[in-house]
Design a protein around this nucleic acid. Structure first.
Length: 679
DNA sequence: ACGGATGTGACA
DNA sequence: TTGTCACAT
């Protein structure tokens, strides 16, 4: 008998927490004098008073809206206090808000699975906590309901004249309530506590929705703001959706919502009930169609992802109208600013969370003079990410040039520059946690770092680039040592209460760190390679806080397994060298990414172990979409393999024999041996 | 000359 | 896969 699907329980307890006019609160915390005053946060003051990006509730009473200009806001609310977003490197810098958001996450993640949905929003799955409370300490047995909880709003609860608080209290204490309602009641009690804790720890207020799924929780969190919470009992759902304008639903605020209205005459979510699942699928495809059919019934199976950290980092700026960039040098200058910011954030992420980003992407928007016709968009481009401002900038510039060439087409050669850039942004994605300490490779190279660095063709490429930063590889080593005890590691800095399923790595004996004996020449290469894997090369050597003592970590392997690599052996070097003359995807680039790509293959595959545990995205090195991965595993010379350090060999062999590691694809190794080629 | 700066996710 | 698009705050 076919069964629907292992549909996640319809009795989950999900909360959506939404910070109230968050940026304003952050500024008010900084300047308490602003509290209680109509306040708004603006970015860029010079043109029409800047654009509002957050508006306090006091100011909203005057009709001040987000996306108004500062000048307009002043008109409708002369008393309004306009606070500017911090500017760094000539652009708006949201760091303070990001960090404030992290503070909130670190409080909320103490209870249940926690998903950072945006800079100021979080989802919590409180099912377990609520079930536990219901079993051990049900509300009906309570003498009093917490003050904050009694201020809850309960959809569908009739307050016929009686005091709302009394009704709410009654609802919480009701003995013969629906089991699912009791779970929601427990969830609401927990959320009320959490909100108070957020207030205590951060001084920020927030609003929340508590329901059986994400969609309803999100809907509810916005219904009573600021600083209140709303519960959605199952019994209220039908009526709620019946009259709810489709545009209010998340995901229906854009074209799809418009299509529902215009093409189907569907104005409320309830109107969707008239359409069969099949019809909706015909109209909008199997996924969207089914999703629509479900939400019409208040059903949403989306899980709360246990993720406390962002999946990407970006830095961008627009150059509207007269500010449009018309020279390569101005583009270069701005890319430098953007890269500096991105680099800072990448290093913070590395130091705090032990994560590295593997892909750099450049987006730009542009227009052409004398060309009102072609509405061609500036293509976005990506390549393997190398750490360090100068590397980032070089690569970003190459990506830009590649994009510009494509944008302009072949006929522009020799012509006068006839383009202008109205927006630039770069982003770092494919971020993976470094299984700190596991990493044979990491350990291997860290230990080599203090040995003499033979200059080779790679180090020549990175000379004057001296950047300041505080990269603490030493910390990673400390972690590695701790791991020897078999403890968990890699918990993100935010997660103060313990391991997070997704972001924590459990170690096994095979992953114990080792010390390798290698000759210095190879060590030099190895160092380069690792640092390139991390992206940081010689230019960052000075920034790496490298401990002078050699951490003597016990080697769990027997001595006979330890292998000494013959002095002077250099076939691997040659192999890499011969493969390293190309650059992935950005074909017009001038500099070789070869070794970088090659070694990123290692980083990628190794990190893949973690990725697997994360049920996260697939792993890969660079590619060029041009058939670059042409090696077959059988074609890899085993003697080359044998020259790798033992532990790396083991990993490599594991990749080559996927049957031993069922979920790994054998071809992943190709990323290691096959830097992409591009003529 | 614009709702900016960021972020996520689906799709071809 | 990469790159585009939609959507969101």
């Amino acid at each position: 008998m076919p069964v629907a699907r292992p549909e996640s329980s319809n009795s989950r307890v999900i909360a959506h927490i939404d910070m109230d006019c968050f940026y304003v609160q952050v500024e008010q915390r900084k300047q308490p004098i602003l509290r209680g005053h109509p306040t708004a946060v603006v970015q860029y003051n010079s043109w029409k008073g800047g654009g509002l990006i957050a508006v306090s509730y006091e100011a909203r009473k005057y009709g001040v809206k987000r996306s108004m200009r500062g000048d307009e806001a002043k008109k409708v609310c002369p008393d309004i206090q306009l606070v500017q977003v911090p500017v760094a490197r000539g652009k708006a810098d949201l760091t303070v808000y990001r960090n404030a958001g992290s503070e909130v996450v670190s409080v909320l993640s103490k209870k249940g699975r926690c998903e950072r949905a945006s800079i100021d929003e979080v989802y919590l799955d409180l099912t377990e906590a609520a079930e536990t409370m219901l079993a051990d300490n049900p509300p009906e047995r309570l003498e009093v309901i917490g003050e904050e909880a009694t201020k809850s709003h309960i959809l569908g609860l009739h307050l016929d004249g009686a005091d709302a608080r009394d009704c709410v209290r009654e609802w919480f204490l009701k003995k013969d309530a629906d089991h699912r309602d009791k779970l929601l009641a427990c969830g609401a009690l927990i959320v009320a506590e959490l909100r108070l804790e957020v207030l205590k720890e951060t001084e920020f207020t927030c609003s929340a929705g508590i329901a059986h799924n994400k969609m309803l929780a999100k809907l509810a969190s916005g219904m009573n703001k600021p600083s209140q919470q709303t519960i959605v009992p199952q019994s209220s759902v039908e009526k709620l959706l019946e009259s709810l304008p489709v545009k209010k639903m998340k995901q229906l605020g854009g074209k799809l919502g418009t299509s529902l209205q215009v093409d189907l005459g569907v104005n409320t979510v309830g109107d969707l009930l008239k359409f069969s699942n099949q019809k909706l699928q015909e109209l909008y495809g199997i996924n969207t169609g089914t999703w629509l059919w479900n939400i019409a019934r208040g059903v949403c199976g989306l899980e709360v992802e246990g993720r406390l950290l962002p999946k990407s980092h970006g830095s961008g700026k627009t150059f509207p109208g007269p500010q449009a960039l018309e020279t390569i040098s101005s583009v270069k200058k701005w890319l430098h600013e953007l890269c500096e910011e991105l680099s800072d954030r990448l290093l913070s992420d590395l130091n705090q969370n032990k994560r590295i980003a593997r892909t750099l992407t450049l987006h730009a928007s542009a227009y052409k003079m004398n060309d009102s016709e072609s509405i061609k968009k500036f293509p976005s481009k990506s390549c393997p990410l190398r750490y360090g401002v100068t590397k980032l900038q070089e690569d970003a510039m190459s990506l830009f040039n590649a994009g510009l060439g494509e944008y302009l087409g072949v006929y522009h050669v020799g012509k006068h520059q006839e383009w202008a850039i109205t927006g630039l942004s770069i982003s770092a994605s494919k971020i993976v946690v470094i299984p700190s300490g596991t990493h044979s490779i990491m350990k291997y190279f860290c230990n080599q770092n203090q040995t003499s660095t033979q200059s080779n063709m790679l180090s020549d490429a990175c000379t004057e680039d001296r950047e300041s930063s505080d990269l603490h590889l030493a910390d990673l080593k400390i972690d590695a040592y701790k791991n020897e005890a078999g403890t968990e590691c890699c918990a993100p800095i935010l997660n103060t209460s313990g391991p997070d399923a997704e972001e924590t790595l459990k170690l096994d004996d095979n992953q114990a760190p080792h010390i390798y004996e290698v000759n210095h020449q190879r060590a030099g290469l190895a160092e380069e390679a690792l640092l390139q894997c991390f992206g940081c090369e010689n230019d960052m050597e000075s920034k790496i806080n490298q401990p002078k003592l050699n951490l003597a970590v016990p080697n769990r392997k027997s001595g006979k397994e330890k292998r000494k690599i013959e002095k002077g052996s250099s076939s691997i070097l040659q192999f890499f060298s011969s493969q390293s003359q190309s650059l992935s995807s950005c074909s017009s680039s001038e500099h070789p990414h070869g070794i970088g790509s090659t070694f990123q293959g290692i980083g990628a595959s190794v990190s893949g172990k973690l990725v697997q545990e994360n049920h996260s995205s697939s792993l890969s090195g660079s590619s060029n979409g041009d058939g670059g991965w042409s090696y077959k595993s059988e074609e890899i010379d085993p003697t080359v393999l044998n020259e790798l350090p033992l532990e790396i060999q083991e990993e490599v062999r594991a990749w080559l024999h996927p049957q031993k590691q069922p979920r790994r694809r054998g071809s992943d190794i190709l990323h290691y041996f096959s830097p992409s080629t591009n003529k």
